[in-house]
Design a protein around this nucleic acid. Structure first.
Lengths: 350, 350
DNA sequence: GATGGGGATGTTTACGCAAACATCCGATGC
DNA sequence: GCATCGGATGTTTGCGTAAACATCCCCATC
C-alpha cells in the first residue's frame, strides 16, 4: 500500500536532525545554532556550550546540500578522466586528491567509459549537473576540443596532458625536456642513433615525446630510424622489442613509458641481446618498479605530485578570481640513471 | 528588460540560470521545466521542445544542491582510502567509479593522509559533512575499528580489505583461495616446501595470505620455512629475494604480490639462481605487467572489477533497504600459469 | 448539449541553512 | 535619570527544486 510504505519509509528513515531540532533542545534560535556551527563570533560561551551539547546529543551533522544551496558553492572539484589504469593518471589523481583535501575541497570522480567524443560530451553534461565548483580534465586534447561546446559556462577548468594552453590552464610534465634528456643521454654514451617505441597516436604526451625524439636526433645530425608504435602496455612494448631485436644496428632504444620499456627488455632478453652491453634502453615515468627491472631501468622521472598540486592550485586560483588563466605550466623532469644504459658495443664510434 | 538581465548574466557569470529563468523564456511554469528536466511524462511534445530550446539558449544546468536538498539524497558515494598507490586500491577504485556511474551515482574521494587513527577519524568526520549518501572504505580493519565511534548514523557503509564482516558489509578477494592455489601449485610441481615473502603486518590481505600459506603447508605435512616480510614494494621483494637466494634448499617462493615477486626475480637473477629451472616464483594480483616479467610471472589473478562492482551493489542495496547487511562476500581468484614455475631441479623428490 | 473524466499545466509549499535585518538588554556617558 | 551604544540573540527571508495539490480544457459519452 502506498501510504503504508511511505509511512514506513518515514518511520525507518533516520530522519535527519536539523538545526531546528538542535535549537529546540538547546533552547535557542536556529540562527544561533548556525553561528555556532560555523564558528561565528558573537555567541556567549555558555550558549555555545549548550548548543554544542545539544548537537552531540542529537548527533547533528550539517546538511551540505542546504549549505551549498545557500552559499552557492560546493567546495568540490570534479575530475574527468578516461582511465585510472595508467600510472600517470593514477598518480596525478592521487596528488590532486591530496592537494584538494588540504584546501578543504573534495574530489568527485567522473570516469569516462570510452575515449569517444560522445562519451566525453556525456561526461561533461553530467559534470555540469554535478555538485562541483570547478573541474580538472585529464584527457587528450582532441577529445576536449570536441566537448568544449558542452562546457558549462562559469565553471573553471584546468587540464592535464594537453596542448590547449591557449584556452585553458594547462599543467603538464615537461615532455620535451624529459624526452630530450633521454635521447641526449643515449647519444652522449656514444650511440650513433636512438630508436623510439612511441605511445598511442591519440596521446598528446606520446606525440610530444616522439616529436622531441625526432627533433633531437635531427638537431644532432643523426639518422632518424623508423618509429615503432605501441599502446603504453608492456605487451605492446614486447612486440616492439621483438621487431627492434631484428635490427642489427639498433643499440639504443627510448621507450615512451616504463611499461613498454619492460616489454622491450623482455623481448631483447628472449632474443639474446644483452642489456645494456649490446642494447641500451631508456624509459619514461619512473614507476616504482622501474628500479627492479632486469636490469634496473634508466628512465625519466615525472613529478606527478607536483602536476596534481599545480592543477589544484590553478583551478582554485581561477575560482577565486573568477577568471580563466590560459597558459601552460611545465613541471620539470629528471633523468634517473640506472643500469639499462651503457656505451654501445665496440665503444664510441664517433 | 530581457536584454538587461541577459547582459547582467553575461557580466556577472556567477549568476546561474534557474528553472524560473527557463520557465519565463519558454512561457511555461517552472514546474513544467522541472518535469522536462526529470523526464517525467505528461508534458506534450511541443511544450517539451519549447522548454528544451529555452534550456539550450540559456545554458541551463540544474542546481544539484537544491535538487539534493529537495530529494534528500545526493546520489553520491564517498570512498575513503589511504592511498591510491597500490595496484589493488587503484583498480578497485576504478571499478567502483565505473560501477557507480552506471547506477547514476558519483564518487567522492576522501584520501587519508596517513593511516593513523586520528587521520581516519578526521576523515570520517569530514565525510559526515560531505554530500554523500553512503560510503565505501578501503582500509585495514583496525583503523576502521578506531574510527567507528565517529561513523555518522544512518549512513551505509561497505568495506574492502577487512575482516569486519560481523559488523559491515565486506567484499574481498578470496585471499585464502588464491594463496592456497598458489601454494598447492608449487607443491604439485614437486617442491618439498614453499617459502613466503609476506606483505606488511598491518595489511589484512597480507595476513590472510600468510596464514593460508602456513596452513596449506602444515596440511600437507611439509616443513614451514621462516617467513620473510616485505612492504609490498619491489624493493622490499628484492631484499627478500637476496635473502632467499642464500638458502640452498629454497626452490619455490610465493610472494604476496607481483611487485615483490618482481624484486625476488631480480635478486635471484643477480645471484645466478635461474628461474624457473632452480627456483620457482609465484606472485599475487596479476598486474598488467606480470606477463612481461623475466620470466613471465605465474600469479594469482584478482578480479578487482568484480570487487568494486560488489561493493557498489552492496552499498546501494543497503541504501535502498535502509538496513545494514553485515557479512562477507568473497570474489574468487584464478591462478594464471606463466613461465616462472617448474618442477624443482632434480625432478620430483617425492 | 450537458456531463464527467483525464491529461496537461499551473500554484503552493517545504527542504535546511545562513545572510540580512530586527530586537532586546545591560552598561556607559552625560 | 535618560539617551545611547553595542553585543547577544531572535525573526524573516530566499536560495532552486520537486512533491502535492489545484486548475483548466478538450474530448468522449450519453
Amino acid at each position: 500500500m502506498d501510504e503504508g510504505s511511505a509511512a514506513d519509509r518515514v518511520r525507518n528513515r533516520a530522519k535527519r536532525v536539523s538545526m531546528a531540532d538542535v535549537a529546540r533542545l538547546a533552547g535557542v534560535s536556529s540562527q544561533t545554532v548556525s553561528r555556532v556551527s560555523n564558528g561565528h563570533p558573537g555567541v556567549v560561551a555558555s550558549t555555545r556550550q549548550q548548543v554544542l551539547a545539544a548537537m552531540r546529543e542529537l548527533g547533528y551533522r550539517p546538511n551540505s546540500a542546504a549549505r551549498a544551496l545557500k552559499r552557492g558553492e560546493f567546495r568540490t572539484i570534479g575530475v574527468v578522466l578516461f582511465t585510472l589504469s595508467t600510472t600517470g593518471n593514477m598518480r596525478t589523481l592521487e596528488a590532486i586528491a591530496t592537494s584538494a583535501a588540504q584546501e578543504g575541497y573534495a574530489i568527485t570522480l567522473l570516469p569516462v567509459a570510452a575515449p569517444t567524443h560522445d562519451e566525453v560530451r556525456g561526461a561533461f553534461t553530467r559534470l555540469g549537473e554535478l555538485a562541483v565548483d570547478a573541474f580538472i580534465v585529464i584527457m587528450e586534447v582532441h577529445l576536449l576540443d570536441a566537448a568544449t561546446v558542452a562546457l558549462p559556462p562559469g565553471v573553471q577548468v584546468a587540464v592535464a596532458d594537453s596542448n590547449a594552453g591557449d584556452r585553458y590552464s594547462v599543467v603538464d610534465t615537461d615532455q620535451a625536456g624529459g624526452a630530450g634528456a633521454a635521447v641526449r643521454h643515449l647519444l652522449d654514451l656514444g650511440h650513433r642513433t636512438v630508436w623510439h617505441v612511441a605511445g598511442p597516436e591519440e596521446s598528446f604526451a606520446a606525440q610530444r615525446r616522439a616529436d622531441t625524439w625526432r627533433a633531437e636526433l635531427a638537431g644532432a645530425g643523426r639518422p632518424v630510424p623508423p618509429m615503432v608504435r605501441g599502446d603504453w602496455s608492456a605487451d605492446s612494448g614486447y612486440r616492439a622489442g621483438l621487431r627492434l631485436a631484428e635490427e642489427p644496428d639498433c643499440t639504443a632504444v627510448f621507450a615512451a613509458n616504463d611499461q613498454m620499456a619492460l616489454g622491450v627488455l623482455r623481448a631483447l632478453h628472449e632474443k639474446r641481446r644483452a642489456v645494456p652491453e649490446e642494447v641500451s634502453v631508456v624509459g619514461f615515468d619512473d614507476i616504482p618498479e622501474a628500479g627492479s627491472f632486469l636490469p634496473p631501468l634508466t628512465t625519466v622521472h615525472q613529478d606527478f605530485a607536483e602536476v596534481g598540486r599545480q592543477l589544484v592550485q590553478g583551478v582554485l586560483r581561477q575560482l577565486r578570481t573568477e577568471s580563466t588563466e590560459p597558459g601552460t605550466t611545465l613541471v620539470p623532469t629528471r633523468l634517473v640513471e640506472r643500469s639499462s644504459t651503457a656505451p654501445p658495443p665496440g665503444g664510441t664510434p664517433r
